[in-house]
Every structure is written in structure tokens, then in C-alpha cells.
Design a protein around this nucleic acid. Structure first.
Lengths: 191, 191
DNA sequence: ACCTGACATGTACATCTGTACATCATCGGG
DNA sequence: CCCGATGATGTACAGATGTACATGTCAGGT
């Protein structure tokens, strides 16, 4: 955003520190699971002393919430890019299939983390809001290409493929994913 | 408990004990989440001393694995009953919708637990096998009413509705769930 | 009647955890 | 040139946790 300005003296040292810690938290969740997310493990992963993590995130829930928010923001941004690149003429079911394969392939770690945080939110009211916004955004985005009802159905199917894909070792075949989206999209296609 | 019945002595040990502890573990996960699953919390929930839990399940992973297995078995049995009650003439999409609404309504707790265990398996190789068997069984069951490809798609959509349903407060409407299943089923209906 | 062995439990301990807080370092202003 | 303020850190501590293990307790064989 802004480099160190005299009027904005920035922090003493490193303004990225907070974000770096949040990202380290995401890495820890990806590598070892939510249950291993501790101040100490995050500190080690971020290469900062223990005191730093407790300084920036006084409580563990703060840290978790920031990690979830960070992951959600990154993800929404990625979805936006995907939507922008989607030419209006392009086959929507095919594009959705690409998206699934991306999340189960190159971005598998990210997907894993997101689902863990998603489930972790079940017993943490503070996180539920973020999770809900997240999949509401997904349903609405998909809905703009069809209709809102179809959008919700598509997002459910989308989540389903991801969930099954991350626990199975193997990724489902491209054809069967595409077929399923095509069947859902077909009746309601608008523009 | 204390008095020994001649006709049902059941030894001094009672074989229910182990299963009761496993079920208590499931309750703990339902009420407080996987991260709160400890020998002590389970012991308290089952009304047995701490020693009992470590006696029957020497390690925590044993306990988790047994809980997952227990939940999976119960669930598969329920699915079997559902399948048996499904008259061959009955509308399949409608029956699937009922099933989703059951899992999000009366059996919401169960669904929550299952998803938590499912995600917990991500970082526990010992549990992955159970999880995989689980959703393979689901896909195959659904496949017997359509075809195997459609079965996998249906199970993905099914999981998706459940996942979204447990994190949102509100349950999706009956009509939109049914519509989505109908679209997926239609092209491949066999018998 | 006694003994044996498996069932069952209470307790102890090393480890890890979240968090508070006293301390240090550095920068901006006087 | 010095000084306070605030960013940043090291350490300490109370509590919780997994697990081992010594100890009870009782059913059945002899």
C-alpha cells in the first residue's frame, strides 16, 4: 500500500510482521492441522520469538480468526480473478471444472486449510460469520452466471467435490466433474 | 451394576463399557469439538474414572479412531435402512432430499460430528481409510439407483449440502435441494 | 479354601499450553 | 545531546494434558 512516509511513521521495525505471523499460522494448519496451532508453533514457523505472537494476537482465537480472514480474503480475490478471466462466451461448466481441479491440484494445501478453518468455526461463534460470508459470496458469484437458486446448488456441489477430493488420495476425473456441473447449469442458464 | 445377576453375570467387566466410552467420545466432539477431546473429558462424559479410558484406549488416537469407526458404522446402518425403505417406485430425488433434511434437522449433531471427524482424518493416516470407505459406500449406494458416475456426483452434491448446512444457521429450502438432485439424477436414470 | 490372572482404578509425573508482565531497544521530539 | 514513549522480546507460572504404573478387586479353577 504505502511505503514509509514521514506522516505515517510506520511501525518501529516491520509492518509486515503481523501479516507474516498470520500466514505462518496458515502454514502450520496446512502442515500439522488446527489442533497443532499454538503460539509457539506459529512463532517457530514465522521465525519470530514467542513474545511477538502474543503481542500481535493477544489470544489464540484472535490468531485463528485472523488466519481465517486472511485465507478467506486471499480466496475471494482469487475467485474474483477467475471470474474476470471468464469470458462471457466461455462454457461455464467447463470453467467451474477448471476451478475444482485447481483447488484439488496446485492449490490443494490451501483447500485443506480452508476446510479445516471452516470446520473449526463450528464451535467458535467468532469465526462462523467469516465462514458464512465466504460461502454466501461463492453462491452469489455462481448465481450471477445462472440464477440465485442454481448458484446455491452449484456452490454446494462445488464444496462437495472439494471436500471429497481432499480426503481421497485421488482426484476425480475431469469428465465426471464437468458432467455434473453441466447437468446443474443447463436448465437455468440465462445470459 | 453392583449386584451380580446369575443369569446375566456378564463377568465382572461389562462389555458395554468400551462402547459406552466411544459413544461418550462422540458426544464430547458434538458438544465441544475435536480439540476438546481428551481422556479426561471423555471419562467425565461417560461417567467412568480416568483410568478406564486409558485402559480401553491406550492412546488418544485409538479413542478417536474408535469414535470415527463407531460413527461411520452407525451411519452406514442408517443409510441401509433408508435404502430398504425406499420403494423402487419412489421418486429418488425426493428421497435424497428427505435424507439431507434429516441430517440437517433431527440428526444435525450427528452430522456435525461426522464432518469434524472427517476433517480430523486429514492429518491422521490411521483415520483416512475409514473416511474413504465411508464416502465410497455413499457413492456406491447412490450409484445403484442411477449409474456409478452419477452416484459419485450425487454423493458430492449430498456432502456439499450437508457441509454448507451445518455452518449456516439456516437450512436450505426443500425445493431447491430437491431441484438440484432432480437435475443430477435425470439424465442417467436407469431402473 | 486358596491362588491366579485379568479387569479396573487412582495417582504421579514430565511435558506442553496460554498468558501476563518486567525488561530491553529504538525512534521522534525537546 | 538527552528523554520519554512505544514497539518488541524473554521469562515465568499456573493449569491442563497424555501416559505409565502400582495398586485394588473379583471370577473361576484346583
Amino acid at each position: 500500500m504505502s511505503t514509509t512516509q514521514p506522516e505515517a511513521p510506520a511501525r518501529r521495525k516491520d509492518p509486515d510482521r503481523r501479516e507474516r505471523i498470520a500466514r505462518a499460522a496458515i502454514d502450520v494448519v496446512a502442515d500439522r492441522g488446527v489442533e497443532k496451532l499454538t503460539h509457539r508453533s506459529v512463532a517457530a514457523a514465522a521465525g519470530v520469538p514467542l513474545g511477538s505472537t502474543t503481542y500481535y494476537f493477544s489470544t489464540l482465537d484472535d490468531l485463528l480468526a485472523s488466519a481465517l480472514r486472511q485465507a478467506a480474503d486471499d480466496d475471494v480475490e482469487h475467485l474474483r480473478e477467475w471470474a474476470d478471466e471468464l469470458e462471457s462466451g466461455r462454457d461455464f461448466a467447463g470453467a467451474l471444472t477448471d476451478l475444482v481441479l485447481y483447488y484439488l491440484g496446485p492449490a490443494r494445501d490451501k483447500t485443506t486449510v480452508e476446510h479445516q478453518l471452516y470446520i473449526a468455526a463450528l464451535h467458535r461463534p467468532a469465526l462462523r460469520e467469516v465462514s458464512q460470508e465466504w460461502d454466501t459470496a461463492l453462491a452469489e458469484l455462481f448465481g450471477t452466471y445462472t440464477d440465485s437458486e442454481t448458484g446455491r446448488a452449484l456452490s454446494a456441489l462445488f464444496c462437495g467435490w472439494l471436500l471429497q477430493g481432499i480426503v481421497r488420495g485421488s482426484v476425480p476425473s475431469r469428465d465426471e466433474i464437468e458432467m455434473s456441473f453441466r447437468r446443474l447449469v443447463q436448465p437455468g442458464t440465462k445470459t
